[in-house]
Design a binder for these strands. Structure first.
Lengths: 231, 231
DNA sequence: CAGGGGATGTTAATGGCGTCAACATCGGGC
DNA sequence: GCCCGATGTTGACGCCATTAACATCCCCTG
């Protein structure tokens, strides 16, 4: 699929004809995703309008139906992109912490949380689209009782880094082993809660400096909770 | 305003004529809000469609414009209702914890968080509408740098209870005083993160039992973080 | 106790959106 | 070389939000 479109795109390039001027675009799917992503960046998930994306690419609205099942499908692509970007952002933030001692593990956990929230603030539209875009979560219901949902391959790297850091906390005796399982969820919830509260909740409009201070406070709380001696 | 409509409503009742059958409804504003909240309950904020609400009440779509600026205004009313319901839910949950000792304070904090998440799970549509309904947070930008946003009067009771419980934690020596300020935000973020993750995030579709276990885990983490000795 | 005026509802119309069906155009494989 | 399927286009339908113009009702004044 991508081969064919790529070939067409190459031809367009070779002929010195801009793809948008040809009857067959050559890479319409990606062009639409890019346009839709831009819309999401500027206006959140609600701004991901199929006709608007087509307009941006310079193509008729119904052309999109050759590449997507419908608007929801297009939005889904944006969602996955946003989630990928978020994971990358976290990965970079986590990788900036060197070493593998206890302090490094703690610092890395904090960096991951900070990266999560920072991405939400820097790319509010994409972040909002990455979650909440779908109405009433028709996310897979996990029939088999599996742990989470869908492919989630995007989240893996950042998630793994968090898990490893938590393992390190246990390994060096900072965290009681019996409270290790499920710790990822607590950390994730804290970061996600901060992110959503500042985007569309009571923390919206807070001065940046004050908000960052609260984030550090929350990170301290969660780390302190992890490393506190068992009651 | 309400007087007049109430008077009309009374008349309708006295005449034994159902309000919806009269040319002038008598209490259209409230009827529309009720219909809209029903829509939100069933389908989330995206289902709050002005025409649908009017249809439910048995009135022409444009009649709504006599009582609301537009769909956004109607949605806003639903939002406030949802937030009020959430606060009530928390208040009840918190009030079920008796006593005022250290254990009670801890238990009350946990109960508030549990109530928050439980409401989200029991009323996903209303909860989603209470937040995130507005696109790209046109929430007041806090020009003056004021602490939070808008009136927030709805949140006061539950928020106060949380603050008091945290104060109690400090008073009885369980929580270091220097980490008291900002603790509400950490607790709020944790609860809100759990709620949103389970509604529209990676925790969606998790078996209820497992999710509840994770909630208790997260509550333990946040409380442990609060009560941990300063590093 | 009239009836006039303002509040409240209705119909009609505009423009945008998602989506389907029918038609047009291109280009790679026989 | 040409033909068929992939890719785009036009046209149309139904839904939505919103505005303008018109209709109905009921309280308040005289």
């Amino acid at each position: 699929m991508e081969d064919k479109s790529a070939a067409n795109g190459d031809r367009a390039a070779r002929d010195g004809v801009r793809a948008k001027d040809r009857y067959h675009h050559g890479d319409l799917r990606n062009a639409l995703i890019e346009a839709a992503t831009g819309l999401a960046r500027e206006g959140g998930p609600g701004a991901v309008v199929l006709r608007a994306a087509a307009r941006r690419v310079g193509v008729s609205p119904t052309a999109a139906y050759r590449h997507f099942e419908g608007q929801a499908d297009l939005l889904d692509e944006v969602k996955q992109y946003g989630q990928r970007r978020l994971a990358e952002h976290m990965l970079v933030a986590g990788a900036e912490v060197a070493g593998d001692g206890p302090e490094a593990a703690v610092a890395r956990i904090r960096a991951l949380g900070r990266g999560y929230v920072r991405f939400a603030v820097e790319e509010p539209g994409l972040f909002s689209a990455a979650f909440g875009g779908t109405e009433m979560s028709p996310l897979v219901v996990g029939e088999a009782g599996g742990v989470v949902a869908e492919d989630q391959s995007w989240r893996a790297p950042a998630f793994d880094m968090l898990a490893e850091s938590l393992d390190a906390l246990v390994a060096c005796g900072l965290m009681p082993a019996e409270r290790r399982p499920g710790a990822e969820v607590s950390a994730w919830a804290m970061a996600h809660g901060l992110a959503t509260l500042v985007l569309e909740g009571p923390l919206a409009g807070l001065p940046a400096e004050m908000f960052e201070h609260l984030v550090e406070r929350a990170l301290s709380d969660i780390v302190a909770g992890f490393t506190a001696p068992a009651p």
